[in-house]
Amino acid sequence: MRAPKPIDKPWSTVISEPEGGLGPRGAVRIAGQLGGPSRGNLFLLVHGLGGDAQRPYMSAAAVAILDHGHACLRMSMRGAGRSGPDFYHAGLASDLHQVLADPSLASYSRIFVIGFSLGGHVAIHLALRAQRDPRLAGIVAICSPLDLARNVELLDAPAGWIYRRHVLAGLSKIHEDVHGHAPRFGTIREWDAATIVPRFGFESVEHYWASQAAGPRLREAAVPILFVATPADPMVPAETLRPHLRRAGAGVDVRWVRRGGHVGFPANTDLGLPGELGLLAQVLTWCEAL
């Protein structure tokens, strides 16, 4: 809940209209925090739905990365945090691609993207792109959904109310920044129908979920992926992941963690990798071995 504060500084760039957007909204400012050396490995951190660059899990990850001597950019997706007002969706990897193309990041030789929850789903889409940064060396998805339709169905069920309320609170703030008012969204489905579908020209929420779901396309990934999940995750149930992970192929390294929740794990988490224990320490071991 109280993550250590990383030593970094504000960073921003301006990106163009996203692929598939109806516009005309024009360019939007993407903000974040950048720290560490100006060369070597750069780790791009992507937050979950309703989050931003300042969430505790983002700060904790940044501290671990900086302590290992790497550079870290924790970004806020469009509409989130200090980024410009707009909406983002589960497959909007074109924004990540544009961020990495910023001239201020040109000196880094290798890039790794670590996405938390929905941010991991967006990061996986970066590995599915035909055009991607040649420096992209690996993708890490932590507690990320793979079946958008089924995940929304379960999150919108009565049992998911406390998690759903938390996510919708962050999304309502985005809506207020864009439109000047914050409607009372009761479900994730309502949010997607009111914002994502019209903003990006999807035919319906079903079309959005089916066309953007990364699970069925995992075998197409051209970049190594580390997928971290836990059977106890209350927001991304294991039942929505297992069918896709079983068919993922050798390019996806799947690590199930027995103890943990949604993007929260014990300090001694072991992914079965050598070196120091702890989620981020183990993730960095995986990345540095590539």
Rank of each mutant, 00 (worst) to 15 (best):
W161H: 06
G180A: 09
R164N: 03
H179A: 09
K173G: 14
G170I: 03
Y163A: 04
R165T: 12
I162R: 10
P183G: 06
H166S: 13
G160Y: 07
F185W: 10
H181L: 07
G180R: 06
H175A: 13
L171K: 03
G160W: 09
A169H: 13
R164T: 05
G160H: 11
R165W: 07
V178G: 01
T187Y: 08
H175G: 08
G186F: 13
I188F: 09
A159K: 11
V178S: 04
H179L: 07
H175Y: 10
P183V: 05
A159L: 12
E176H: 10
G186Q: 15
A182H: 04
G180Y: 08
V167Y: 02
G186A: 07
A182R: 15
R165K: 08
A182P: 06
F185A: 04
G160N: 12
I162Q: 12
A169S: 14
I174G: 03
G186Y: 05
L171M: 09
Y163I: 05
A169R: 15
G160T: 10
P183A: 08
L171P: 00
G186N: 14
R165H: 11
H175Q: 15
R164E: 02
R164A: 01
A159F: 07
A182K: 09
A159N: 10
L168P: 00
K173T: 13
V178P: 00
F185I: 08
T187K: 08
G160K: 12
I174Y: 04
V178N: 02
I174T: 15
R165D: 08
A169M: 09
H179E: 04
H166R: 14
H166C: 09
T187M: 04
